[in-house]
Amino acid sequence: MSGSPFAAPLRPLGARGYAICLSGIVWRELLRFVQQKERFLSALVRPLLWLFIFAAGFRSALGISIIPPYDTYVLYEVYVTPGLAVMIQLFNGMQSSLSMVYDREVGSMRVLLTSPFPRWWLLFSKLIAGVVVSLVQVYVFLAVAFLWGVEIPLYGYVLALPAFILSGFMLGAIGLVISSLVRQLENFASVMNFVIFPMFFASSALYPLWRVRDASEALYVACLINPFTHAVELARFALYGAFNPVACAVVAGTTLVFFALAVIAYDPGRGVMGLRGGPKGEAS
């Protein structure tokens, strides 16, 4: 045992240290993702069920007229594919939030927060890690959809990458804020009911908004306010080489707001954790 290594701590907090911290967090998330094969499978099965069964059934019931970014009539499978891709990210973002709550209960969140790097950087890294995992899922899904006959122009896969990064970031940030508010793991069922399903159904993922407007003006407004709608439209346009500035602005704005809220929520001085998240037996 040598004494000298303990003489003074290392403090490599320069730019290289920040990069190592980020890549370490992303690397761990990917390793864990690879280990949890069931998680990957269920993340993939969910949208494929929608694509193979729901869309097949709906194909005849719902005709899609020509709306941007499409320049021809499209099959329903083709219409829902971008929405299902972003749905994967929605589930992934919320699942990361689930894992944050779980992390907080078992303590690895505590380990993360003892890092000397600023908290916003740790949260940012955690978000990036979630986005990387969601991108793997999205592109595997798009590949299966391609084999199923949903053909998207090749350049679309490349152009949509920034859109998916941004939407993944937004949904992860929303999940992060929720994770700071949810105290127990079991509450994920409520997150499903009150966040995931409303966001998914009240959006343009499954049906074009003009159809929704025909049915109900109120629902149409709800869909328009829903940032998930804009994430879907951003991806849909990008997949066909078009840019939707409104969607981009809404998604970017929502990302900023929720990331700021997450940083506040996890700030030890202002956040809710110190008031609510006490250890068992010591907190009321």
Partner: peptide, 18 residues
């Protein structure tokens, strides 16, 4: 589900070490 070394490397990264 990670190895001992993977666990340690992750923690080291949180301190900027690699």
């Amino acid at each position: 589900d990670l190895t001992v070394r993977q666990n340690l490397a992750y923690h080291a990264a949180l301190h900027g070490l690699a």
